[in-house]
Design a protein around this nucleic acid. Structure first.
Lengths: 344, 344
DNA sequence: TGTTAGCACTCTCTTATAATGAGTGCTAAA
DNA sequence: TTTAGCACTCATTATAAGAGAGTGCTAACA
């Protein structure tokens, strides 16, 4: 069977209607609301065809039709018109990036908040994936006689810090010296390359403090390992209650449980992906828990290096055109802001 | 009317039953399940009295009775027996504090998780309130030619770091010198005392870099101001769905919305309070949003200085005795751990 | 005088049944 | 090929009837 232009028109009408109403769409509704110049009976026939082709589904015999994931995919790829963001909304976003926030985590967190505010969906964002970033500088900062702070500064200004215990009788100058040694050996390595650093070479420089050296290496490795597991930021978690499909307490609960599984969310966002906006619809998601959600994600970059991903998550009946335009704008705005802050 | 021992017995039976079943308790149930040696008719009379005295409420004429907030208060103050924590649970908690976590935020976060795990309520925790803590050390760590990291280390090992822009042509040695100057002037001040620092005295030491000095002061003040607004950590946010009183989507929603209001939660936890466990029941809470919840909080300390608060929040029909014993144990365990880590 | 059995009454919750209405698929005519 | 007409399906809503839990009151009892 061929998907002629009339079928497409009808499909589009049904999708549009369903996105707005969340109610199964009947032939009469299509005939009345979307004046296609054909009768409901004709539409009925076409709808029957569309169902056979897998674009529509019927909750039960005497209900209207609901778009399938396949239909949404077609819609996203061919049918929808992505309008660029309205001026008001663009201004709203810009405003947030004008209060020079300098802490990266704060930036990402704010981005998530803004996203959920303007889309009314739940938003997710991950901080830069350090594996793609190089180490710039390592510095031990004395805290008191017993502790020092190990600060790792990366090429994109992102840092991790850990408190470590230092042996007695070590002074600030010595810590500076150690910092120098570590920096020298780790500088310009990416986080995934650190295994290649020749530890024995560093070891030789720690003449008498072998024990301290060992604990330092432990902390460093641990810090590197832990840094792989990045923080996930959420915005508008309770927005899900706005959607009629989540009035059911069980569904709402399982959605919110999903949001608590930070590891899973991280996996979803961190999966290697090309630059730009990506839409993942319902069953297209690999994760069982997401089979009736859609996710629209966008990457953000520093210069031309992709650093991380932001996204919104909602029911498959999502306002894709709007979501895509917001995500597109937001990804670019964030990249621009980061590049401006930290340089390319 | 007098609250004689029989009335207390009946009230206790009703509260116990209601805490378990969440169903209004009838006179027959009390007579059958709690063998008090009196008939349901007598109990009925007593219940009628208890209602008149404000300890019981009736959802509707032909339903059983439900304890009022006043009854819970009486229960908490006089009736309930707080058993000390079971060995298993105590071990479970101890285990978490055995993996030497050194980052304070991580500790508090983990504490919240453990709390919600073992109580099945939603838990809240706030990180130490810095206003009660003194500044130990200020250090500028170079990041690249353009940026440096300003690290503030406090007496309890807690730190705040901010990225700041540095003027061109400034090297590491100079940053070290600046760090020294700042440390010298701010050391041993509490965060609320920083206004008393004589800025002009420092200014004199920055001979040629007045502009840098100004931006430094800006960042410092900002950082101090921001540090007043502490992070709130949550655990088990979806636990609320376990309770029949939150099967209603509207109630669940408003509860979850409450949890998103970090400022409000902070306010609740940060309100000055004595050391130890505190129970706040339903309408006793000042916040409108909490009028049908109860909160059990405990403080944690470093040495003998109260640093912050942890708590669990649930329906007024809460297992107070258990909640109190868990919170008591947890607050002490956390204090002990912190003291061990950072000294008194 | 306090306690208890008995009973009518109230009110919610459950279940059964009927009515409504949106929507479909099929048929036959245009 | 399109469309009007109509019988049929099925979820949803409305209505009614019971069932059940619990109370308050009364009167008898120790």
């Amino acid at each position: 069977m061929k998907l002629d232009s009339r079928k497409l028109q009808i499909l589009q009408a049904i999708i549009n209607d369903y996105i707005i109403t969340a109610e199964p769409v009947g032939s009469r509704t299509v005939a009345r609301k979307y004046e296609l110049g054909i009768s409901s009976a004709t539409i009925r026939n076409e709808m029957s065809d569309l169902e056979e082709m897998g674009f529509l589904e019927q909750p039960h015999t005497s209900a209207g039709r609901v778009p399938s994931d396949k239909a949404y995919r077609l819609y996203v790829d061919r049918l929808m018109q992505v309008k660029s963001l309205g001026e008001q909304e663009a201004d709203y976003i810009k405003e947030f990036y004008e209060h020079k926030i300098l802490q990266l985590e704060q930036i990402i967190f704010t981005t998530a908040k803004v996203l959920s505010d303007i889309t009314n969906y739940t938003s997710i964002a991950i901080a830069p994936q350090l594996s793609r970033v190089t180490i710039g500088h390592i510095q031990l900062v004395p805290v008191d006689r017993e502790f020092a702070l190990l600060v790792i500064v990366t090429s994109s200004g992102i840092l991790k810090d850990t408190l470590i215990q230092i042996p007695q009788g070590i002074n600030g100058d010595f810590l500076n010296k150690v910092s120098g040694i570590l920096t020298e050996h780790f500088q310009n390595k990416t986080f995934s390359e650190i295994d290649m650093v020749d530890l024995s070479a560093i070891k030789r420089e720690f003449l008498e403090n072998q024990k301290f050296f060992n604990s330092l290496v432990d902390v460093l490795t641990d810090s590197f390992r832990r840094s792989q597991k990045q923080e996930v930021y959420l915005g508008g978690t309770t927005n899900i209650f706005n959607f009629p499909e989540y009035q059911d307490i069980l569904r709402a609960r399982s959605f919110l449980n999903l949001l608590e599984e930070k590891d899973l969310l991280y996996q979803i966002l961190a999966s290697p992906q090309d630059e730009g906006v990506k839409v993942s619809i319902g069953t297209e998601n690999l994760q069982e828990e997401l089979r009736d959600c859609s996710i629209v994600t966008a990457t953000y970059s520093l210069g031309n290096r992709v650093l991380g991903t932001i996204g919104v998550i909602g029911p498959t009946r999502m306002e894709y055109s709007r979501a895509v335009s917001v995500m597109d704008y937001m990804g670019k705005a964030l990249s621009r802001y980061l590049t401006q802050l930290y340089g390319a």
